[in-house]
């Protein structure tokens, strides 16, 4: 299923495929023609993706077939062992936790997991965690501190789930506590926004020493749809809200919210998942390596400082 702006690209791709098939079938040499079309395709992709609107980036960040958090985990974590349960309320499949190795060193993995299909999406609650998920995350942060394991958090959620049980069980409280628990980690933490970074539900596992973001991922205080419903009183104004919110990887780098953008293959991660997860793997390995061997006090101090200085204000001098 193509995104609206991908239609011309897909049309050209299918034309090339047809021509190739015809050439094979009829044993004619169309190499030159095909090569020309391929050059055109490359140009078209480049132009399209260089000029994506912010709303189009949101669509790419949510595109079916985009690598999920666990797809990325599979590419850079060895010996992954999933651990379940928050020891109080249950186990939340929307937030996957486990142990593994990166470059031989042990890590705690936290991954907000959307489904790869409808069935898994329902099981994963579309990546929207309940308080139980954040309690599990905090339990894993305890373990990370106790055993000296770095934390790698993969963020991909529309937000923490807004439901009756979630509110009754203190959704706001667990997000606040998770932010605090993560800010106190005595081990390095790396967070990667691999799809949607939806508000407090994303930040709850995003208080890291290094925060990376995939090129077409977004990270926002509110979804464009909700913002539009409030500010324009019309959810259909989401494209305008996306523009106003400045939620793309480039915007966030400029705002100092993220430290690094991980390039995606041309056409978006959903077009070439293998290349995309390999790029994430390289970036996470490098980020972990840059934090290895730092004194505990420095790890805690640097992370606190990173977040203490977030925001833009003017200060009147006395």
């Amino acid at each position: 299923m193509a995104l609206p702006f991908e239609k011309p690209i897909e049309d050209l791709e299918s034309k090339i495929r047809e021509m190739q098939a015809y050439a094979d079938e009829q044993q004619v040499d169309l190499a030159e023609e095909i090569s020309l079309l391929e050059q055109r395709l490359e140009r078209l992709k480049r132009e399209t993706f260089a000029h994506l609107t912010r709303w189009q980036r949101v669509l790419v960040a949510r595109a079916p077939g985009r690598p999920t958090a666990l797809d990325h985990v599979g590419a850079f974590v060895d010996d992954f062992v999933e651990l379940h349960g928050d020891r109080a309320l249950g186990d939340d499949p929307a937030l996957v936790a486990g142990l593994g190795r990166v470059d031989g060193a042990g890590v705690v993995v936290l991954a907000q997991q959307k489904g790869r299909d409808t069935k898994e999406n329902i099981h994963r609650n579309f990546g929207m965690a309940h308080p139980s998920g954040y309690r599990k995350a905090m339990r894993m942060m305890e373990m990370a501190d106790k055993f000296g394991l770095a934390v790698v958090a993969l963020i991909d959620t529309p937000g923490a789930y807004p439901g009756i049980a979630a509110e009754e069980q203190g959704q706001a409280w667990v997000i606040a506590e998770s932010i605090r628990r993560m800010s106190r980690l005595r081990v390095p933490a790396v967070a990667v926004v691999v799809g949607e970074g939806g508000s407090g539900g994303a930040l709850a596992i995003g208080v890291a020493n290094r925060v990376l973001i995939l090129e077409n991922s977004v990270y926002s205080v509110i979804s464009p749809e909700s913002c539009a419903a409030i500010r324009w009183r019309d959810a259909a104004e989401a494209p305008r809200a996306a523009e106003a919110l400045k939620l793309t990887s480039a915007d966030l780098l400029e705002q100092g919210v993220v430290d690094e953008i991980v390039a995606e293959p041309l056409g978006g991660a959903h077009k070439d998942p293998a290349t995309a997860v390999a790029a994430t793997a390289t970036a996470v390995r490098a980020a972990l390596a840059s934090l290895r061997g730092l004194p505990v006090e420095e790890i805690v101090r640097a992370r606190s400082e990173r977040f203490r200085h977030m925001g833009r204000v003017l200060v009147d001098s006395a």
Partner: peptide, 9 residues
């Protein structure tokens, strides 16, 4: 935007 989200941290 995200700058206000970061105030939570």
């Amino acid at each position: 935007g995200a700058l206000s989200l970061m105030q939570m941290a």
